[in-house]
Amino acid sequence: MSAMVEEGVQTVTLGKQLGAAGGMMLVMTVVHALGLTGISKVLDLRTEHLKEMSFSLKSISLMSGMGLLLLVLHTVEIGIFAGFYLLINAMQTVEEALYYSASAYATLGRTADYFPSDWRLIGALEALIGFILIGWSTAFIVSKANRLMPG
């Protein structure tokens, strides 16, 4: 009987982790979409504007600004995950939560070592979410850079 109870607890824990990961994916998708929209507006990355611009010091500055703002956006997303880890008491300090989150988000592989076992799956899923968001940012950069190139 205790094995069935233990299995039931693991199922609840797995469901809790998957639900939390799904919620975080939704939050991150919204944050990232808003961030990319904001970056586009702040830097005036409209297609017409980019096509008028030749590849020059100005366009290099624009791309550098985009890179910097994308770094800020990803740092905010890492911070949101770190806040979640503090909220569920998986981490004890802000520095520990930020370090862990940045490591997982950037898919460096530090997941289960520092996580309570009932939440360790969320770290692995943060790596997947981070991978998707970094890929989205890469596609964003490439699409804007292609509009700067003559052709």
Rank of each mutant, 00 (worst) to 15 (best):
S59W: 07
L125H: 01
V142T: 15
A112K: 11
G135D: 11
I122V: 12
A82Y: 04
L14W: 06
S54N: 11
L125T: 09
S54A: 14
M66P: 08
V27P: 00
V9A: 10
D113F: 14
L50P: 07
E96K: 05
A106M: 06
V31W: 11
L43M: 13
G65W: 13
L62E: 07
S54Y: 08
A102M: 02
S101F: 01
S59N: 12
G83F: 07
V142H: 08
L86Y: 04
A97K: 03
E77M: 14
Y100R: 00
I39Y: 00
A97G: 01
K58Y: 10
L125C: 06
A102E: 02
W136A: 09
R120Q: 12
A21Q: 02
E6R: 14
S117K: 13
F81S: 01
L125Q: 01
R46G: 10
E6S: 14
M63Q: 15
M24D: 09
S143F: 11
G123I: 06
G67Y: 05
R147F: 04
I78Q: 00
I39Q: 00
I88R: 06
P150Q: 10
L26Q: 05
R147T: 14
M66R: 12
R110F: 11
G123A: 14
G151T: 13
L98N: 09
L26W: 09
L26F: 08
T13Y: 14
M91H: 10
V5E: 11
Y99C: 05
H32I: 10
P116Q: 09
L57W: 12
E95D: 10
L50M: 15
G83S: 02
V9G: 02
G22A: 06
Y105R: 08
S101N: 00
L62R: 12
W119P: 03
